[in-house]
Amino acid sequence: MADFEQHFIQSADGLSLGYRVYAGDPAQMPLICLPGLTRNARDFHQLATLLTAQIVVAPTIVSVDYRGRGTSDRAADPATYNIGTECQDLLLLLDHLKIDKACFIGTSRGGLILHILTSVAPERIGCVIFNDVGPVLEIQGLRDIQSYLTGAPALAGWPEAVRHLKSIHGQGFPALQEDDWQDLAQSIYVDRDDRITADCDPAIGRAFATLPLEEPLPDLWAQFDQFADIPMMVVRGENSTLLSEATVGEMQARRPRLRAVVALGQGHAPLLHVEPLARDIISFLNSVTGD
Rank of each mutant, 00 (worst) to 15 (best):
Phe4Met: 09
Ile9Gly: 10
Leu17Met: 01
Ala27His: 14
Met29Phe: 00
Ile32Val: 09
Thr38Ile: 10
Thr38Asp: 07
Asp43Glu: 09
Leu51Met: 10
Leu51Arg: 13
Thr52Met: 15
Ile55Glu: 01
Ile61Lys: 05
Arg69Asp: 04
Arg69Tyr: 06
Ala79His: 11
Ile83Cys: 10
Thr85Glu: 07
Leu91Glu: 07
Leu92Trp: 05
Asp95Lys: 12
Gly106Arg: 00
Gly110Thr: 03
Leu114Arg: 03
Val120Ile: 08
Glu123Val: 06
Arg124Val: 14
Ile125Met: 03
Cys127Asp: 11
Ile129Val: 12
Val133Ile: 05
Ala152Tyr: 06
His164Cys: 08
His169Pro: 07
Gln171Val: 13
Glu178Asn: 08
Trp181Asn: 04
Asp183Trp: 13
Ala185Trp: 15
Arg195Met: 05
Thr197Cys: 07
Pro202Arg: 03
Ala203Val: 02
Pro212His: 14
Leu220His: 07
Leu220Pro: 07
Glu238Asn: 10
Ser244Arg: 11
Glu245Trp: 14
Gly249Arg: 09
Gly249Trp: 11
Met251Thr: 07
Met251Ile: 09
Met251Ser: 08
Gln252Phe: 11
Val261Arg: 12
Val262Tyr: 09
Ala263Gly: 14
Gly267Gln: 11
Val274Glu: 02
Arg279Trp: 11
Asp280Phe: 09
Asp280Met: 10
